[in-house]
Amino acid sequence: MKKQVAILLILLTTFCCENETKTNGKLNVVTTTTMITDLVKNIGGNIVNVEGLMGSGVDPHLYKASEGDVSKLVNADIIFYNGLHLEGKLVEVFEKMGNQAKTPIALADELDKKGLIGSDYFASNYDPHVWFNINYFKQFAEKVTSVLSKKNPENTLAFEQNKDKYIAKLDALQAKVKSVIDVLPKEKRILVTAHDAFNYFGESHNFEVVGLQGLSTATEAGVLDVQKLASFIIEKQIKAIFVESSVPKRTIEALQAAVKSKGHNVEIGGTLYSDALGNTGTIEGTYIGMYEYNVNTIVNALK
């Protein structure tokens, strides 16, 4: 990995100071996660070219930049990423780029750290899965709009209008998911998933959230972790546990088997989208569609 990073940094240093370019007169914007890609497309509309490094089902915790990514980063006018060490293996690349003419934008830097959930798994000491708090995602939208407007001031009005429309959709999403979740009794609001990506979701909607692998998929769940969580599921009479699209399902299947070995049964309630959206062109391929899909899946399995 160090050798790969070294090669990338040499290439970035070689090309980073080239003049900024536009394709078809539009800003070139590079994003990391699929959530951020979808957000920037909504704000930028047809005024910008947006290219995401990560696709559906890609785990940002484990993502390694390829040499093919270098040309995208070099030719970008703006780079947006989540931050808080979500994209752990890209951090060194971004930090080095920050010393050059082009500085990647960590959207989570806009958030008040007092409201973030602490974590010992990340160098930032915070849980980076902040997009599951819709209010935080609105702050991401504000920052994206500000950066695009400064870079392309002649289109500020269009960016602002796109942002207002999108935040109105996020307001509607909040109202909709609240009405769905309200049918689920509080004692049934226990969400067990492959890893702790849903703590901000839990905080927003009064769920107790338990992840088998902890906050980062880079950590492995041990036998004792599985057995301990299996006992918790039986004690709380939890009806369903959930797979995540960006995490191998074997960990949750092992948990289900452990519960069964103790003479009880727990269903796999479905697949949730955590660190990545669904396929492009599907409802789950958008942030709003993903959030609504997750809520419906969780509530239907637990109620």
Rank of each mutant, 00 (worst) to 15 (best):
K163H: 09
I241M: 02
E244C: 04
V144N: 06
I10C: 11
G278N: 07
I288V: 12
K228R: 12
N135I: 00
K26H: 03
A218Y: 10
T280E: 10
A141Y: 00
P248F: 13
G118T: 14
L224T: 13
V299R: 02
E20R: 13
S231Q: 02
S124M: 06
G68A: 15
L272I: 13
E67L: 15
S179E: 14
L39A: 02
V210C: 06
I7M: 11
F80L: 14
N49A: 09
S231A: 06
F207Y: 11
H264E: 08
L170K: 04
Y63Q: 11
A65P: 12
Q213S: 11
K113H: 05
D109H: 04
N135Y: 00
G55Q: 07
Y136E: 09
K41G: 08
V295P: 03
I233S: 07
Q256R: 09
G25N: 10
M1G: 14
S124Y: 09
A240W: 10
E267D: 10
G202A: 10
I10H: 13
D127M: 06
S204A: 13
K102D: 02
E154M: 12
F80P: 12
F198H: 05
K22N: 01
L255A: 01
G263W: 05
L302S: 03
K249F: 03
H195T: 03
G44Y: 05
K169V: 03
T297S: 02
D109C: 05
T193S: 14
D77C: 10
K186E: 15
D127H: 05
T32G: 06
S261Y: 01
L302P: 08
K143L: 08
L107I: 01
E292V: 11
I47T: 04
E187L: 00
S231K: 00
E51T: 08
N155F: 04
N46R: 11
K114C: 09
H61V: 00
G281P: 10
Y287P: 09
E208M: 11
Y200H: 09
V70Q: 03
L116G: 00
T217N: 05
E160K: 10
S216W: 07
V29G: 06
G118Y: 07
L12M: 13
A257W: 04
V266Q: 14
P185F: 00
I10Y: 14
T21L: 08
N265P: 00
T34R: 04
P128D: 11
N279G: 09
S245E: 08
K22R: 06
D59C: 07
N75I: 05
H195I: 07
D182M: 10
L107S: 01
S56W: 05
Y63H: 08
D120A: 08
M290S: 14
L173G: 06
K188Q: 05
R189H: 09
Q256F: 01
K102F: 03
F242V: 07
N294E: 14
S146K: 04
A258W: 02
S124V: 10
T32Q: 08
A254H: 09
M97C: 13
V50S: 00
L90M: 14
V30N: 01
E87C: 04
L62F: 10
L53V: 00
Q256H: 03
E142W: 13
D59W: 02
L9S: 15
G98M: 01
D59E: 13
H195Y: 06
A65I: 11
I288D: 03
N155E: 12
V40Y: 01
K303N: 02
Q256I: 01
C16S: 15
Q237K: 15
G88T: 08
A276Q: 05
K178V: 12
N99Y: 15
T103S: 04
K239I: 10
R189P: 11
D275Q: 07
